[in-house]
Design a protein around this nucleic acid. Structure first.
Lengths: 222, 222
DNA sequence: CAGTTTTTTATTGTTGAACAATATTGTATA
DNA sequence: TATACAATATTGTTCAACAATAAAAAACTG
């Protein structure tokens, strides 16, 4: 993926290339949530001009990764509990729609299956960060069952924000490990077209996930 | 609303003010779909610098109203049939979720009710453009039943694009008139918490609407 | 000394000019 | 007519400057 990215980047405008890089860095937790990003400093860091950087900031702000406060500057978003709850509301609506849109033999199903195996492999090597990444890809694939670019885009934004939360909580085993098995069960229900069961399963799944995230956030604070 | 907007704008950055203005102009059909927006020309038109305008373009591009092609420029998006179908896919997923999220006494229900009356008034004065606007507001209010800022934002983007399509087709009576009554029926089903019926109704509603839009697009071309 | 006002400083907001890189147009040649 | 090349216009990017705003520091007052 890294190679493909670089190829894509090669003839893209500088602002979009840098936007991609900063986006990656954000997701990798290279900036602290709530941290202020100074135009002068960041522009120097990436060797680009302030004007170009401001375009980058506009891009990332509308992707929900940065917050722009007029005359104050740009800050890394720091999702709070209410943001997490909202994110899970979005997931619930969209992923439920994805289950109902699933059709037999849809290519996304094959991709989901492959991703469950990738998750297994990552667990074997105790690469919990990779487990988290693969888990996200699994759900993105699930949403692509809708065959809706706009819905996928919306979901991507929400997932990127959630990734920030995970980073904040550090990648620990218990945060992602349980979902490897759950993903397999969920995929099976979808493949067997047990739509109602799959939806019930998804609801329990998301509730469990949301609760564990919120609990971890509480622990982090309190 | 215009007054409130102006107030809000007053201490916003220039780029966001202009973005709002251009957004309005786009929705009002002041630019032709597919039209190229030259940086030099538009910057002159609004009396701002190219650098600032480029930030505006980044904003509007990520709102889905403009398309940016590197080294070629920025163009007004011209949604085609496949875009319309995708927009309705999104509507189906999100609005179905809204119905299921509806709770008795939710403020959005009151707003929806008020909007059905506004639609009636607009019909009485044969202001079909207003009928279209109010109709959109009705559906936005419906989505706000989810109490999810992120879902509402996503829905807004899709609706703005759909508005472009309507503008392209011109505001004729038949395009919106039938939905005044359907909105009332739909609201009633939701208020009575006949969830399953409401969902069935919504499906037929969206299908009918999608078909009429696609047919009008065909007519426009052929 | 605490709290408030003023001054200073740093940062963002915005501009205009300049140049490089790319796309488009026009022209000449085969 | 079609291709190759030159001329032109547009976008991409940078820089330096200044205005407007917010943050920090200093001075003032009770």
């Amino acid at each position: 993926m890294a190679l493909a990215d670089l190829d894509e980047q090669s003839d893209q405008p500088l602002s979009e290339k840098v936007a991609l890089r900063i986006r990656e860095m954000l997701i990798q937790g290279r900036f602290a949530p709530g941290e202020k990003l100074s135009e002068h400093q960041v522009a120097g860091q990436f060797g680009i001009s302030r004007n170009t950087l401001r375009e980058v900031f506009r891009l990332l702000t509308s992707q929900g990764l940065l917050t722009h406060i007029p005359n104050r500057g740009v800050f890394v978003v720091s999702p709070n509990e209410s943001a997490v709850m909202d994110i899970y509301r979005v997931r619930w609506v969209i992923q439920k729609g994805a289950i109902q849109a699933a059709s037999r033999g849809h290519p996304a199903l094959a991709r989901m299956k492959a991703l469950t195996h990738e998750a297994d492999a990552a667990r074997s090597s105790s690469d919990w960060q990779q487990v988290g990444t693969v888990n996200m890809e699994f759900h993105r694939a699930m949403v692509s069952l809708c065959d809706s670019p706009r819905l996928s885009l919306c979901f991507d934004l929400v997932l990127a924000e959630l990734r920030l939360v995970f980073r904040l909580l550090a990648y620990t085993a218990h945060l992602h490990e349980p979902y490897i098995a759950l993903n397999i069960s969920l995929l099976q229900l979808i493949e067997e077209e047990k739509t109602a069961d799959a939806i019930d399963f998804l609801e329990a799944y998301l509730l469990k996930s949301e609760r564990s995230v919120l609990a971890a956030m509480q622990r982090k604070k309190g």
